[in-house]
């Protein structure tokens, strides 16, 4: 799958590497900003009250 992405990126190897890095950073950003904040409350660390509010 990564090979497929690599082959479909434009430019020479340097450009490809730069685009890959940008893509990876974008993925991490989306994860930290949207996916993890959604997933984290599903774990038990948020249950600190006694009435389950």
């Amino acid at each position: 799958m990564y090979g497929w992405i690599w082959r479909h990126l434009p430019g020479n190897a340097w450009v490809k590497a730069l685009i890959s890095l940008a893509l990876a950073l974008l993925v991490v950003y989306v994860l930290f900003q949207y996916v993890f904040p959604w997933a984290e409350p599903l774990l038990p660390f948020n249950d600190v009250t006694v009435n389950d509010q």
């Binding site: 991490v28 994860l31 993890f36 997933a39 984290e40 774990l43 660390f45």
Partner: peptide, 13 residues
């Protein structure tokens, strides 16, 4: 993904 999530929970929060 798991390593990133652990880093998020332990550190980033």
């Amino acid at each position: 993904l798991i390593v990133l999530f652990v880093a998020y929970v332990l550190f980033w929060t």
